[in-house]
Amino acid sequence: MPDTIDPCGDGTGAGPDDPEPSPPVHYAEQALLGALLLEPHRLGTLGSLGAAQFGDPAHAALFAAMGALAPPEAAVHASEPVWLSSVLDHARRDARGLTAAYLHALVQACPDPRHTAAYTQMIRADHARRTLRTHAGSLAQTATVPVQPDPASAVLAQADTLARYLDDLTGQFAPHPGSLPRTPAPPDPPRNTGSDVLDEERLLLATATAHPGEMARMRWLLPVDFALPVHAALFHCLTALAHRGEPIDPVTVLWEAQHRGLLRDTAPAHILNLLATPAGSVEHWGGKVLQRALLHQARTTANLIRSYADDPANSVHQLVTGSRRALADLTAVRARWQHQHHAPQPPNQRQTPRTTAAARAGPLRTTAPSSPARTSR
């Protein structure tokens, strides 16, 4: 634990055994605690600052001890170190390594006790950064390890918690010019391309080709939702044909794929084989594709917000602005997911058993469709 602002005297703020230099908030915490040790009456001017907002556990213990003890009379405090001794004894219950020498070092580390408001705002800002990163980590974890049986709802609930925290931060920190983070965006997390994922996408494409009329109810699904680019391109072919009102079957889809350049990397026979195994309901498979797209976007959003929070150059206002923009991308997918789940179905569709769509699609093959991961001309 450093005893002064710069124990090495070289401007790094790190001692000879310290692996990393201390962050600026460490010195803000030292300065605030030093000011309070010098002038305890300033404790009543700090507003809602709490011990949990300190990044250093020993500093948190000291601040909690100050709050638990009655401030001394100014005259008594100026002549006797009774209050300092009481604070030290109380803080040692949670931070046994604290010493009287460190309290004196804190007093020396305070440039000006009149600047307690500024030190307090620095501590709040760093706490906001750490808390935002924690919320983003929870969102990423929930999307990576889906909560069954309704992973989409769990992810959206976590996103709502993050959004509420951003709302809480608004107004606590003043806006300023240059409000967007300049942190480079991290690469998107890899898509899930497991065999079950690809099989469901292939079943969706084949079933939509066999029953194109059902696609009119699936405006909530977009090509970008697919994990495999060739599947996204084929779905784009299907939606283009449906939009133009042209006939849809495996051959017409293949012709459309040729015009869109898809056959440069994919053999025609492979596409025909991919579209030859319809089964089940188009909306059922589409819902699975959309749910995975929602989870993927949640991971992407969480990674972006964490990268903002990890960049100390970003102010809290920049963190709020950038995080809200990142959440907007998740909100766009969320709107389509909600449309799929809450849009009323036609009366005849509500009365049709789920097995009817599968029966219309024809018998289900006993072997899985061939994977498009490796193709040949």
Rank of each mutant, 00 (worst) to 15 (best):
Ala240Cys: 01
Val251Lys: 10
Thr45Gln: 10
Gln258Gly: 12
Thr142Glu: 08
Asp17Val: 08
Asp17Tyr: 06
Ala109Glu: 01
Gly15Thr: 11
Phe63Arg: 00
Val82Ser: 13
Ala326Gly: 14
Pro312Thr: 02
Thr131Arg: 12
Pro347Gln: 09
Arg191Asn: 08
Ala206Gly: 12
Pro312Gln: 02
Ser138Phe: 14
Ser370Thr: 09
Thr321Pro: 00
Ala105Arg: 15
Arg191Asp: 10
Ala358Glu: 09
Asp112Asn: 15
Asp188Leu: 13
Met122Val: 15
Gly213Lys: 08
Gln340Met: 15
Ala210Asp: 06
Arg42His: 12
Tyr165Lys: 01
Ser85Phe: 00
Ser179Lys: 07
Val76Phe: 02
Asp18Ala: 09
Ala240Gly: 07
Pro23Val: 07
Ala65Gly: 05
Gln291Cys: 15
Arg42Gly: 01
Pro40Ile: 00
Gln158Gly: 06
Thr183Lys: 10
Arg325Asn: 12
Ser86Asp: 06
Ser195Gln: 11
Arg244Val: 06
Asp17Ser: 09
Ala269Trp: 02
Trp255Tyr: 12
Leu272Lys: 01
Ala154Arg: 06
Thr120Met: 04
Thr170Gln: 14
Tyr165His: 11
Pro71Trp: 03
Arg324Asp: 05
Leu156His: 00
Pro72Arg: 04
Pro81Ile: 02
Leu263Asn: 06
Leu274Ala: 12
Leu156Trp: 01
Arg130Gln: 12
Gly9Glu: 10
Gln148Met: 15
Ile305Cys: 07
Val289Phe: 03
Pro184Asp: 07
Tyr27Met: 14
Arg191Val: 06
Pro16Tyr: 11
Thr356Trp: 13
Ala332Val: 13
Gly11Phe: 06
Ser376Ala: 14
Gly261Cys: 12
Ser281Asp: 15
Pro113Val: 02
Arg360Val: 09
Arg92Gln: 12
Leu330Thr: 03
His296Tyr: 12
Ala216His: 13
Ser153Arg: 11
Arg133Met: 09
Ala373Lys: 13
Thr300Ile: 04
Ala78Ile: 00
Cys8Ser: 15
Ala118Phe: 14
Gly11Ala: 09
Tyr27Ile: 08
Leu295Phe: 07
Met1Lys: 11
Asn348Ile: 13
Arg164Asn: 14
Phe235Tyr: 15
Val316His: 00
Gln338Ala: 06
